[in-house]
Amino acid sequence: SKSATAKPSATPTKAAAPQAAAAPAPAPAPVAKPGPAAPPPPAPATTHVPPLQSSCKPSYPRPNDPKAAVGAALTAAAGQSRVLNLSNGGTDKMPPLPVNLVKAIAWQESGWQSGILACDGGIGTMQVMPATVTWMNGKFAAKSDPETLEGNVQLGTQLLDWLVAYYGDSGFGGKYDLAPDPATGKTPLLDLVIAAYNAGAGNVHYNTVTDPVTNTTTGSLVIPNPSYVANVKALMSSAPWNAAG
Rank of each mutant, 00 (worst) to 15 (best):
S9R: 06
P146S: 11
G168L: 04
K233P: 12
I223F: 04
A27T: 13
G173M: 02
P41A: 10
L149E: 01
S220N: 14
L155I: 15
Q19E: 08
A77C: 12
T47C: 06
G174F: 06
S220A: 13
T157E: 07
G245Q: 07
V102T: 08
W241Q: 00
N225F: 01
V204N: 03
K143F: 06
S54W: 06
A45R: 04
A23F: 08
G71Y: 00
G90S: 07
V209R: 14
T91N: 13
Y167V: 05
V70G: 09
A6R: 15
Q108P: 06
G71C: 02
A77I: 02
V204T: 03
A27F: 09
G156R: 00
G171L: 01
A37T: 09
T5C: 12
P212M: 07
P98Y: 05
V193R: 02
T184N: 11
P182Y: 03
R62V: 15
G115Y: 01
P182C: 00
F172E: 06
W241Y: 05
D191I: 00
L155K: 04
W112G: 01
V128C: 03
V209I: 12
R82C: 01
P63A: 15
P63I: 14
P8K: 06
D65Y: 08
P8L: 01
S220T: 15
L192F: 03
L159S: 04
G115Q: 03
E150F: 09
A69P: 02
S3W: 12
Q108W: 05
V83A: 14
G202D: 09
A141Y: 07
